[in-house]
Write a protein that binds this DNA or RNA. Structure first.
Lengths: 128, 128
DNA sequence: ATAATACATTCGGAGTTGCGAATATGATAA
DNA sequence: TTATCATATTCGCAACTCCGAATGTATTAT
Protein backbone atom coordinates (compact mmCIF):
# COMPACT_ATOMS: atom_id res chain seq x y z
CA UNK A 1 0.00 0.00 0.00
CA UNK A 2 0.97 3.59 -0.49
CA UNK A 3 2.21 5.56 2.47
CA UNK A 4 5.11 7.88 3.48
CA UNK A 5 4.75 11.62 3.74
CA UNK A 6 7.60 12.71 1.50
CA UNK A 7 5.73 12.37 -1.75
CA UNK A 8 5.36 14.58 -4.77
CA UNK A 9 2.10 16.43 -5.26
CA UNK A 10 1.16 14.10 -8.05
CA UNK A 11 1.88 11.08 -5.88
CA UNK A 12 -0.36 12.42 -3.16
CA UNK A 13 -3.17 13.04 -5.61
CA UNK A 14 -2.61 9.58 -7.02
CA UNK A 15 -2.93 8.05 -3.57
CA UNK A 16 -6.10 9.96 -2.78
CA UNK A 17 -7.76 8.97 -6.03
CA UNK A 18 -6.69 5.36 -5.64
CA UNK A 19 -8.16 5.23 -2.17
CA UNK A 20 -11.54 6.50 -3.26
CA UNK A 21 -11.63 4.64 -6.57
CA UNK A 22 -12.21 1.16 -5.16
CA UNK A 23 -15.84 0.32 -5.79
CA UNK A 24 -16.64 -0.76 -2.24
CA UNK A 25 -15.06 2.37 -0.81
CA UNK A 26 -16.98 4.54 -3.26
CA UNK A 27 -20.19 2.91 -2.10
CA UNK A 28 -19.23 3.56 1.49
CA UNK A 29 -18.51 7.22 0.85
CA UNK A 30 -21.84 7.62 -0.92
CA UNK A 31 -23.71 5.75 1.81
CA UNK A 32 -22.25 8.00 4.46
CA UNK A 33 -22.89 11.07 2.35
CA UNK A 34 -23.56 14.23 4.27
CA UNK A 35 -24.58 12.30 7.36
CA UNK A 36 -22.95 9.57 9.35
CA UNK A 37 -23.23 5.81 9.50
CA UNK A 38 -22.27 2.97 11.78
CA UNK A 39 -20.60 -0.17 10.50
CA UNK A 40 -23.62 -2.40 10.92
CA UNK A 41 -25.61 0.08 8.89
CA UNK A 42 -23.13 -0.02 6.06
CA UNK A 43 -23.10 -3.78 6.36
CA UNK A 44 -26.86 -3.96 5.90
CA UNK A 45 -27.16 -1.34 3.21
CA UNK A 46 -24.23 -2.45 1.08
CA UNK A 47 -24.31 -6.18 1.72
CA UNK A 48 -20.64 -6.69 2.48
CA UNK A 49 -19.28 -8.66 5.41
CA UNK A 50 -18.39 -6.73 8.56
CA UNK A 51 -14.66 -7.39 8.46
CA UNK A 52 -14.51 -6.29 4.86
CA UNK A 53 -16.33 -3.04 5.61
CA UNK A 54 -13.97 -2.37 8.49
CA UNK A 55 -11.00 -2.99 6.24
CA UNK A 56 -12.23 -0.45 3.73
CA UNK A 57 -13.05 2.00 6.51
CA UNK A 58 -9.50 1.62 7.80
CA UNK A 59 -8.09 2.50 4.40
CA UNK A 60 -10.33 5.55 4.16
CA UNK A 61 -9.44 6.55 7.72
CA UNK A 62 -5.71 6.25 7.07
CA UNK A 63 -6.15 8.56 4.11
CA UNK A 64 -7.68 11.14 6.42
CA UNK A 65 -11.06 10.97 4.76
CA UNK A 66 -13.13 9.78 7.69
CA UNK A 67 -13.79 10.90 11.22
CA UNK A 68 -15.33 8.75 13.93
CA UNK A 69 -17.59 9.19 16.90
CA UNK A 70 -18.30 6.47 19.38
CA UNK A 71 -21.77 6.17 20.87
CA UNK A 72 -22.11 3.21 23.17
CA UNK A 73 -20.98 0.18 21.24
CA UNK A 74 -21.58 1.80 17.90
CA UNK A 75 -18.99 3.79 16.05
CA UNK A 76 -20.30 6.37 13.65
CA UNK A 77 -18.28 7.40 10.65
CA UNK A 78 -18.57 10.72 8.86
CA UNK A 79 -16.76 12.34 5.96
CA UNK A 80 -13.91 14.47 7.26
CA UNK A 81 -13.81 16.29 3.92
CA UNK A 82 -17.29 16.19 2.41
CA UNK A 83 -15.91 17.85 -0.72
CA UNK A 84 -14.68 14.39 -1.62
CA UNK A 85 -18.20 13.81 -2.92
CA UNK A 86 -17.71 16.60 -5.44
CA UNK A 87 -15.01 14.50 -7.04
CA UNK A 88 -17.44 11.62 -7.33
CA UNK A 89 -20.13 13.88 -8.73
CA UNK A 90 -17.72 15.33 -11.27
CA UNK A 91 -16.66 11.87 -12.32
CA UNK A 92 -20.30 10.88 -12.66
CA UNK A 93 -21.03 13.85 -14.89
CA UNK A 94 -18.04 13.01 -17.07
CA UNK A 95 -19.57 9.60 -17.64
CA UNK A 96 -23.02 11.10 -18.27
CA UNK A 97 -24.38 9.38 -15.20
CA UNK A 98 -26.96 11.09 -13.07
CA UNK A 99 -24.91 10.91 -9.93
CA UNK A 100 -25.67 7.79 -7.91
CA UNK A 101 -27.92 9.05 -5.12
CA UNK A 102 -25.46 10.89 -2.97
CA UNK A 103 -26.80 10.39 0.48
CA UNK A 104 -28.29 13.65 1.74
CA UNK A 105 -27.87 12.61 5.35
CA UNK A 106 -31.58 12.06 5.77
CA UNK A 107 -32.75 9.21 3.59
CA UNK A 108 -30.36 6.41 4.42
CA UNK A 109 -27.67 7.31 6.90
CA UNK A 110 -29.83 8.71 9.67
CA UNK A 111 -33.29 7.22 9.27
CA UNK A 112 -35.06 4.26 7.70
CA UNK A 113 -31.99 2.17 8.29
CA UNK A 114 -32.44 -1.40 7.16
CA UNK A 115 -29.94 -3.05 9.48
CA UNK A 116 -31.57 -5.28 12.09
CA UNK A 117 -30.28 -3.64 15.23
CA UNK A 118 -29.22 -0.01 14.92
CA UNK A 119 -31.59 2.86 14.04
CA UNK A 120 -34.62 0.58 13.84
CA UNK A 121 -37.16 3.38 13.77
CA UNK A 122 -38.71 4.19 10.40
CA UNK A 123 -39.58 7.90 10.62
CA UNK A 124 -40.12 8.71 6.95
CA UNK A 125 -42.88 6.13 6.51
CA UNK A 126 -46.30 7.81 6.69
CA UNK A 127 -48.45 4.67 6.74
CA UNK A 128 -50.41 3.78 9.85
CA UNK B 1 -8.40 -4.93 -16.09
CA UNK B 2 -11.87 -3.53 -15.86
CA UNK B 3 -14.11 -3.59 -18.91
CA UNK B 4 -17.65 -4.55 -19.98
CA UNK B 5 -20.39 -2.02 -20.57
CA UNK B 6 -23.10 -3.45 -18.35
CA UNK B 7 -21.86 -1.91 -15.14
CA UNK B 8 -23.51 -0.02 -12.33
CA UNK B 9 -23.00 3.71 -12.11
CA UNK B 10 -20.69 3.27 -9.17
CA UNK B 11 -18.67 0.69 -11.06
CA UNK B 12 -18.24 3.08 -13.97
CA UNK B 13 -17.12 5.87 -11.68
CA UNK B 14 -14.78 3.43 -9.98
CA UNK B 15 -13.24 2.49 -13.30
CA UNK B 16 -12.79 6.10 -14.36
CA UNK B 17 -11.12 7.07 -11.12
CA UNK B 18 -8.91 4.01 -11.17
CA UNK B 19 -7.76 4.80 -14.68
CA UNK B 20 -6.76 8.35 -13.84
CA UNK B 21 -5.35 7.56 -10.40
CA UNK B 22 -2.20 5.79 -11.55
CA UNK B 23 0.66 8.21 -10.99
CA UNK B 24 2.15 7.91 -14.47
CA UNK B 25 -1.23 8.44 -16.08
CA UNK B 26 -1.88 11.46 -13.90
CA UNK B 27 1.42 12.92 -15.04
CA UNK B 28 0.46 12.25 -18.64
CA UNK B 29 -2.90 13.96 -18.27
CA UNK B 30 -1.26 16.97 -16.66
CA UNK B 31 1.47 17.10 -19.30
CA UNK B 32 -1.09 17.09 -22.08
CA UNK B 33 -3.22 19.60 -20.23
CA UNK B 34 -5.24 21.92 -22.44
CA UNK B 35 -2.96 21.31 -25.40
CA UNK B 36 -1.70 18.21 -27.11
CA UNK B 37 1.45 16.15 -26.95
CA UNK B 38 3.20 13.46 -28.96
CA UNK B 39 4.61 10.35 -27.35
CA UNK B 40 8.24 11.35 -27.69
CA UNK B 41 7.40 14.59 -25.98
CA UNK B 42 5.85 12.80 -23.01
CA UNK B 43 8.82 10.47 -23.03
CA UNK B 44 11.23 13.39 -22.72
CA UNK B 45 9.24 15.44 -20.26
CA UNK B 46 8.26 12.61 -17.93
CA UNK B 47 11.30 10.36 -18.27
CA UNK B 48 9.47 7.08 -18.84
CA UNK B 49 10.31 4.55 -21.54
CA UNK B 50 8.40 4.76 -24.79
CA UNK B 51 6.62 1.43 -24.49
CA UNK B 52 5.51 2.27 -20.99
CA UNK B 53 4.08 5.61 -22.08
CA UNK B 54 2.23 3.91 -24.91
CA UNK B 55 0.79 1.39 -22.48
CA UNK B 56 -0.56 4.12 -20.26
CA UNK B 57 -1.88 6.02 -23.26
CA UNK B 58 -3.68 2.88 -24.37
CA UNK B 59 -5.38 2.57 -21.01
CA UNK B 60 -6.44 6.21 -21.09
CA UNK B 61 -7.63 5.82 -24.67
CA UNK B 62 -9.70 2.74 -23.85
CA UNK B 63 -11.39 4.74 -21.11
CA UNK B 64 -12.39 7.32 -23.71
CA UNK B 65 -10.25 10.01 -22.16
CA UNK B 66 -7.92 10.70 -25.07
CA UNK B 67 -8.26 11.62 -28.71
CA UNK B 68 -5.52 11.31 -31.29
CA UNK B 69 -4.35 13.13 -34.37
CA UNK B 70 -1.65 11.84 -36.65
CA UNK B 71 0.76 14.29 -38.24
CA UNK B 72 3.41 12.55 -40.30
CA UNK B 73 5.06 10.00 -38.08
CA UNK B 74 3.96 11.74 -34.93
CA UNK B 75 0.73 11.04 -33.15
CA UNK B 76 -0.62 13.83 -31.02
CA UNK B 77 -2.78 13.10 -28.02
CA UNK B 78 -5.31 15.48 -26.52
CA UNK B 79 -7.82 15.26 -23.70
CA UNK B 80 -11.19 14.20 -25.05
CA UNK B 81 -12.82 15.49 -21.87
CA UNK B 82 -10.68 18.32 -20.49
CA UNK B 83 -12.97 18.47 -17.47
CA UNK B 84 -11.02 15.47 -16.23
CA UNK B 85 -8.47 18.00 -15.03
CA UNK B 86 -11.06 19.52 -12.73
CA UNK B 87 -11.12 16.23 -10.86
CA UNK B 88 -7.38 16.43 -10.43
CA UNK B 89 -7.58 20.05 -9.31
CA UNK B 90 -10.28 19.22 -6.81
CA UNK B 91 -8.23 16.36 -5.45
CA UNK B 92 -5.24 18.68 -5.17
CA UNK B 93 -7.25 21.22 -3.21
CA UNK B 94 -8.49 18.53 -0.85
CA UNK B 95 -4.86 17.71 -0.08
CA UNK B 96 -3.98 21.40 0.29
CA UNK B 97 -1.69 21.21 -2.69
CA UNK B 98 -1.41 24.12 -5.05
CA UNK B 99 -2.38 22.12 -8.08
CA UNK B 100 0.62 20.67 -9.89
CA UNK B 101 1.12 23.00 -12.85
CA UNK B 102 -1.74 21.97 -15.07
CA UNK B 103 -0.39 22.48 -18.52
CA UNK B 104 -2.03 25.51 -20.09
CA UNK B 105 -1.32 24.27 -23.59
CA UNK B 106 1.39 26.85 -24.12
CA UNK B 107 4.28 26.19 -21.81
CA UNK B 108 5.05 22.54 -22.34
CA UNK B 109 2.80 20.77 -24.77
CA UNK B 110 3.08 23.14 -27.71
CA UNK B 111 6.35 25.03 -27.33
CA UNK B 112 9.73 24.80 -25.63
CA UNK B 113 9.52 21.04 -25.83
CA UNK B 114 12.59 19.36 -24.41
CA UNK B 115 12.48 16.18 -26.44
CA UNK B 116 15.39 15.92 -28.87
CA UNK B 117 13.47 15.55 -32.09
CA UNK B 118 9.94 16.89 -32.12
CA UNK B 119 8.99 20.56 -31.62
CA UNK B 120 12.64 21.62 -31.44
CA UNK B 121 11.93 25.32 -31.76
CA UNK B 122 12.15 27.32 -28.55
CA UNK B 123 9.76 30.26 -29.07
CA UNK B 124 9.34 31.44 -25.51
CA UNK B 125 13.04 32.01 -24.96
CA UNK B 126 13.90 35.70 -25.47
CA UNK B 127 17.69 35.37 -25.34
CA UNK B 128 19.77 36.08 -28.46
C1' DA C 1 14.02 -1.15 -52.82
C1' DT C 2 16.23 -0.63 -47.48
C1' DA C 3 16.70 1.88 -43.28
C1' DA C 4 15.27 4.63 -39.74
C1' DT C 5 11.88 6.79 -36.94
C1' DA C 6 7.57 7.09 -34.00
C1' DC C 7 4.57 4.50 -31.89
C1' DA C 8 1.64 0.13 -30.67
C1' DT C 9 1.10 -4.40 -28.95
C1' DT C 10 1.93 -8.87 -26.87
C1' DC C 11 3.91 -11.81 -23.37
C1' DG C 12 5.42 -13.32 -18.98
C1' DG C 13 6.95 -13.23 -14.48
C1' DA C 14 8.04 -10.59 -10.04
C1' DG C 15 5.53 -8.15 -7.04
C1' DT C 16 1.32 -6.38 -5.02
C1' DT C 17 -3.41 -6.41 -3.70
C1' DG C 18 -8.02 -8.13 -2.55
C1' DC C 19 -10.51 -10.39 0.50
C1' DG C 20 -11.90 -14.58 3.41
C1' DA C 21 -10.98 -16.70 7.84
C1' DA C 22 -9.66 -16.28 12.25
C1' DT C 23 -8.85 -13.65 16.11
C1' DA C 24 -8.61 -9.49 19.13
C1' DT C 25 -10.55 -5.47 21.51
C1' DG C 26 -13.64 -2.40 23.76
C1' DA C 27 -18.34 -1.54 25.43
C1' DT C 28 -22.55 -3.00 27.46
C1' DA C 29 -25.78 -6.45 29.54
C1' DA C 30 -26.84 -9.94 32.82
C1' DT D 1 -17.84 -11.92 37.00
C1' DT D 2 -19.23 -13.86 32.14
C1' DA D 3 -21.63 -13.25 27.87
C1' DT D 4 -22.75 -10.77 23.96
C1' DC D 5 -22.49 -7.29 20.63
C1' DA D 6 -20.10 -3.87 17.49
C1' DT D 7 -16.07 -3.26 15.48
C1' DA D 8 -10.86 -3.73 14.56
C1' DT D 9 -6.93 -6.19 13.19
C1' DT D 10 -3.85 -9.79 11.59
C1' DC D 11 -2.64 -13.51 8.47
C1' DG D 12 -2.20 -15.87 4.19
C1' DC D 13 -2.74 -17.01 -0.44
C1' DA D 14 -5.27 -16.86 -4.95
C1' DA D 15 -5.71 -13.42 -8.15
C1' DC D 16 -4.42 -9.61 -10.29
C1' DT D 17 -1.45 -5.69 -11.85
C1' DC D 18 2.71 -3.53 -13.16
C1' DC D 19 6.22 -3.07 -16.25
C1' DG D 20 10.45 -4.75 -18.88
C1' DA D 21 11.66 -7.17 -23.06
C1' DA D 22 10.66 -8.28 -27.43
C1' DT D 23 8.31 -7.57 -31.50
C1' DG D 24 4.93 -5.51 -34.80
C1' DT D 25 3.08 -1.67 -37.72
C1' DA D 26 2.83 2.93 -40.04
C1' DT D 27 5.31 6.61 -42.01
C1' DT D 28 9.20 9.02 -43.89
C1' DA D 29 13.99 9.24 -45.61
C1' DT D 30 17.51 7.62 -48.75
Amino acid sequence: MIKSDTLSSVAKISTLLQVISAEARLEILLAIGAGEACVCHLEAVLGYRQAYISQQLMTLREAGLLGTRRDGRYIFYRLEKPEILQIVELAARLEDLDLPAVDSGISLARSSCECPRCCSQVPTRTSA
